[in-house]
Simulated scan of single mutants.
Amino acid sequence: MAEEPRYLIDPYQEWAAREGVPIVKGFGVDLLAVDVRPWARKGAGGAIVQLDGRGDFADIHVIEIPPGGETAPQRHLYEEVIYVLDGNGSTVVETPGGERRGFEWRTSSLIAIPLNARYQHFNGSGRRSARLASVTDLPLVLNVFRNEAFVFENPTVFPERFGAEQHYRGDGTFIPTRPGRHMWETNFVPDLRTFELREWSARGAGGSNIMFVLADGTMHAHISEMPVGTYKKGHRHGPDFHVFAVTGEGYSLYWYEAERELRRFDWKHGGVFAPADRLYHQHFNVSPEPARYLAIAFGSLRYPTVADKLATWMGMDVSVKEGGRQIEYEDEDPLIREIYEGELRKRGIPSRMHEVVPA
């Protein structure tokens, strides 16, 4: 009997199912609590996280390295940006010329592996596991090429992606443009909690940020900070922005344009969520310290790649009234401010929003 014709095939999802590790889904999750199982390909514990707003291009790989352990050596024809959730250790990257570039990481480090470079992670502790979260564009690559050997066994090297040697020591190159678009080019940020940011008042009360250029790649990352007693302006964009809480605690409200109900996701370090396509969302700091969050996505400020990312980078701090993607404070639903002030009163934290816009 002839086989039934196959159609509506997703090669990436078929690959994920064969890997034998948990596949976690949802609007947002606590990555520190995600269950991991032995992942033969990685040589460590692992899980795949597919958030509702990941879109077509990105996913998260959670990797847990046992005490004193190491991952299997890797190379692959997809990009990844790694955030260290917990622990300390080191990574060794092999250059096309055979040089081994090593660097030591800790909780809240940011790592970019050059495209198709051979690399390996090592846990620096003999007593505690280390847990990493890697945002990748594997779904795009597998669904386009549909050949696992091409993706995981490809010998092609990309010398231009490796960057300067000092970029593996935690140094980088500051590229000034204008507020909200200032860039730091590197392969490794030792600690996102203390990295110097630049003011971006157009995005919200006293806020600051920096955009990263990582391994000259297509994957994007930026980090933003909200001072105590403040919140960001509401905004929207396309899918696949994976938002990681780095410092402080807070929550994000989200809603579609035609909706009246405000939904909520509470976050602290370990939490990640991904707003879906055109979903308005807004971030709020309710902790007695500045709150930082990291966003990783496909399509960087240097290489937007897709039309929606170009529109996002052009209009991210422009009012929706002027064709942009941001809701100004004076145009937001008054309930948003009311909810926030109530949350601060519960915690005994004074609001600073009156310094920006009257209630």
Rank of each mutant, 00 (worst) to 15 (best):
M353S: 09
I296C: 12
A47V: 03
R337P: 01
H121Y: 15
V157H: 06
P334M: 11
D317L: 05
G248I: 07
K232T: 12
R347D: 09
F188S: 01
K233E: 10
R75I: 06
R169S: 14
I9G: 00
Q282W: 00
E185T: 12
Q120M: 12
P139W: 00
S129M: 09
V151D: 02
I113T: 11
P275C: 03
S252E: 13
G98V: 10
P66Q: 14
E148Y: 00
V144N: 07
E19G: 00
F244G: 02
I175R: 03
A117I: 11
G323M: 11
R181D: 08
K321Y: 10
A33Q: 15
H167M: 13
F152E: 06
G170E: 03
G324F: 09
L335V: 02
A133F: 04
E14S: 03
G45N: 15
T312K: 01
A205T: 04
E64S: 13
E19A: 08
A33K: 15
L8K: 08
P275S: 06
E99S: 10
T312V: 06
T177R: 15
V81T: 12
P227Q: 10
R101C: 01
T230R: 08
N209K: 13
E343P: 13
Y168L: 06
P334A: 13
V320W: 03
E225N: 07
S208G: 14
E332L: 10
N123P: 10
G28E: 12
A2E: 14
E196C: 01
D171A: 14
L310Q: 15
E99L: 10
R127I: 13
R345F: 00
V144H: 14
R193N: 05
Y293Q: 07
P176E: 11
A44I: 09
V151E: 06
N88F: 15
G69F: 07
Q326E: 13
F162S: 03
A58M: 14
E259Q: 14
I296Y: 06
K233D: 05
P159Q: 06
A295N: 12
R345H: 04
A245R: 08
F57H: 13
D137T: 07
V356E: 08
S201A: 15
R118C: 03
F145V: 14
P139R: 05
L140H: 09
G45S: 12
G163C: 09
E70G: 06
R127W: 10
A215P: 02
S108R: 08
I23E: 04
G206W: 04
R18Q: 11
K25N: 05
A359W: 14
Y251C: 05
E330G: 01
E261N: 09
L279F: 08
D277Q: 11
Q50S: 13
D333Y: 05
N147Q: 10
N154C: 02
V62F: 02
W255C: 05
G26C: 01
V141G: 00
E165L: 12
T186I: 01
V84H: 03
P358A: 12
T177A: 13
G98M: 09
Y256M: 14
A58N: 14
S351N: 09
G163F: 02
H242W: 05
L310A: 15
L31A: 00
H182V: 04
V36H: 07
F212V: 07
W200M: 08
P38S: 11
R146G: 06
W15F: 15
V306R: 04
E79F: 06
L253C: 06
E341Y: 13
R18N: 05
